[in-house]
Simulated scan of single mutants.
Amino acid sequence: MSLSLAGKTAIVTGAAKGIGLAIARHFVDRGARVMFADCDETALAEAVDGQTGEDSPIRGYGGDLSQKLAMANLLSATVDAFDRIDILVNASRNCLLSDPLNPEDQSLEAMLKQNLMTSLRLSQMTAKRMIAQAEKDGNEDGPVGAIVNISSLAAQRTQPELLAYSIAGAALDQATRSLALALAPQRIRVNGIAIASVMTASLQAALRDNPDWRGEIEEKTPLGRIAAPSELVDAVQFLSADGAGFVTGQILTIDGGRGLLDVVAAPGY
């Protein structure tokens, strides 16, 4: 089974920090050429750290990917830099708490836009580029591309404060399965990874404000700890590599065993 990413070109969204940054750096270390994409241009500049020379496997794209024009520009910038697109990792995500009994609460609209529609639209546009690329290359039977969506265990668990986040996550999981079926004839695989608590900058900040949450999260996670971003990257590599060529439409859960229990932990984590 080949899990090599050497020579592949990937786009990773949310790549300025946290999970997206860990994935993007891992891909570069494994020989891929990677477009780091994020709306936070300041953090993105720090992430790429000037390593974007003509011969570098790293490029950066800053823009609001909820806008179709920004998506199109991202794809064009990637092709201009690396000539092709083989992998898309939709790692950009956000978590807003909801007031489930307030009809004026706008969190659902925001979460659907950020965590569902951006990933869905970018996947659709990227798939079209991949298909056109395969036709141009005369690729009639080999793998054409892989898309990986980063989702959440919240999509499978009920927690009132996460009403919007959970709905958006469940919708993204269904979009993953639907796209997998739609793109299978084109030899593009689509999979997802559902994660639980990961020690990102946002969780670190939340734990500083709510120190009791750490104990609650660890107690309700069978493996007894919070995952590091680096613990997700091998799974993303597997789903992106040609060695997973018969895997599509799957949601791989990486949660330290929490999904085995009928419990929820601290809001959002």
Rank of each mutant, 00 (worst) to 15 (best):
T176K: 04
D209R: 13
T200G: 04
A164H: 11
A154W: 08
W213D: 07
A265T: 13
F246T: 11
S197A: 14
V263Q: 11
E231Q: 04
K128T: 15
V233K: 03
S240W: 06
A164K: 07
L207S: 06
P143A: 04
G215Q: 07
V190E: 04
A228S: 15
A175E: 05
L203M: 07
Q159W: 08
A146H: 05
Y165S: 02
A265C: 08
F238P: 02
G245D: 04
L260V: 12
G257H: 03
P160S: 04
N210E: 13
M130P: 01
S202Y: 06
A180P: 01
G224Y: 01
A235Q: 10
R157I: 09
D255K: 00
T176G: 12
M130I: 00
G142A: 06
N149I: 03
A241S: 14
N191P: 05
D209S: 15
N139V: 04
V247P: 02
L252Q: 07
G245C: 06
G169K: 00
A180K: 02
Y165C: 02
Q174M: 11
A235V: 09
L207D: 07
L183F: 03
R187E: 02
S166W: 05
V148L: 02
R177A: 02
I150A: 07
L203G: 02
A205Q: 10
S178P: 12
L207R: 13
E219L: 14
L207V: 09
E135W: 10
A170F: 00
L203F: 00
Q156S: 12
A227H: 10
L223Y: 14
T253M: 11
L181M: 12
K128A: 15
S197W: 08
